[in-house]
Design a protein around this nucleic acid. Sequence first.
DNA 1: TCCCTGAAGCAAGGACTTTGCTTTAAGCTG
DNA 2: CAGCTTAAAGCAAAGTCCTTGCTTCAGGGA
Lengths: 196, 196
Amino acid sequence: MARPGGRSARVQEAVHTAVRELQAEVGRPELTIPLVAARAGVTPSTVYRRWGDLQELLSDVAVENLRPDAPPQDHGDLAADLRNWAEQFIEEMASPIGRAYIRDALLGAPDGDNAARCSQYAAEQIGVVLARAAERGEDAPGVELVLDRVVAPMMYRILFRSGGPGDSEGAASPGGLTAEYARGLVRDLLDAPGAR
Amino acid sequence: MARPGGRSARVQEAVHTAVRELQAEVGRPELTIPLVAARAGVTPSTVYRRWGDLQELLSDVAVENLRPDAPPQDHGDLAADLRNWAEQFIEEMASPIGRAYIRDALLGAPDGDNAARCSQYAAEQIGVVLARAAERGEDAPGVELVLDRVVAPMMYRILFRSGGPGDSEGAASPGGLTAEYARGLVRDLLDAPGAR
DNA sequence: TCCCTGAAGCAAGGACTTTGCTTTAAGCTG
DNA sequence: CAGCTTAAAGCAAAGTCCTTGCTTCAGGGA
């Protein structure tokens, strides 16, 4: 495996870029490996050998798209930080494009490696928020508890409860996927005794 | 659409059966639509027209496999009922085969219809448990709260935190997917003030 | 500088997918 | 009960994708 600047790195970059462009241009149903390869200027067999199939490739790209580009904002106290992070999270993840990324990420290798990376991202962001709170001397819950009580419910709704028969017809954010819901989860968590 | 006994129903039954048999016999990587069609005694084009692609078909079968076959057992009080249901749930869903079903179900039509059906199953089972508790005069939380606090965390771990880099090497149930974890979720829920 | 290794290119063969047309069978009507 | 209607299945051909063995190339190490 060559370091940045090597040929492998260039190919990977070109292929990922091609996927992103073509997803926007032709849409996912029309997306095929030969198409991506042509756009990236490589032969299809190269893509097949490195990624195996389209699902793997899309999963890779999705995980990259889900990687946070900056640490969470500092709003001065734990409640505000968490509330804000959760609101932003639900807004990004519940959007059609966010949901597509999550699904794609889950679709990767059956070992769940890519999915674990997504959770890792969230855990890191939350870790930063909680570490700040600790520095301020605030009483903060553990990362696990935040994942269980805030992240998991949002993800569950995003994956299992949007678009189904139970959804109200003209709702803007189906299945209760609203900023208000996110705030409620944070509130319920922080109101309860902090540690498990 | 013909009713049970019609040709469509027979074909659907034959194809679903073929999928189940072949999944066990040759494994999923070798599973193809032509193979399923041959086993089911239909032509591949029939399968393509009705299901579109292998993912859709597997998703359909997975949802059927995830349908509960009986109402949850009655153990006399809410805590026992919920605890028992959660233990059973995590045991089934966290197993390799259960995880595969969940993934397949999620992989279906992008509208999330099949996934919503899975959540519906869980909600119904929980609804039965809670209704029993209400009949007994017990103080019971709402279905939504149980989904958020018990089902969602389990599902999150199953989907996002198994097999990844954070897992301990030889752990029997990776990522804390144990009956003990399930019991803890139920305990935490019932110990807190019941309604939101 | 030369060699070594891993990755990419090429090309042929095979498998899967799509699609238009035909045929069948279930349900409905007179 | 016979004939009609229609949705779905069968068939077959054409196209696209996927696989794979071999060759070529580029980057890293001795």
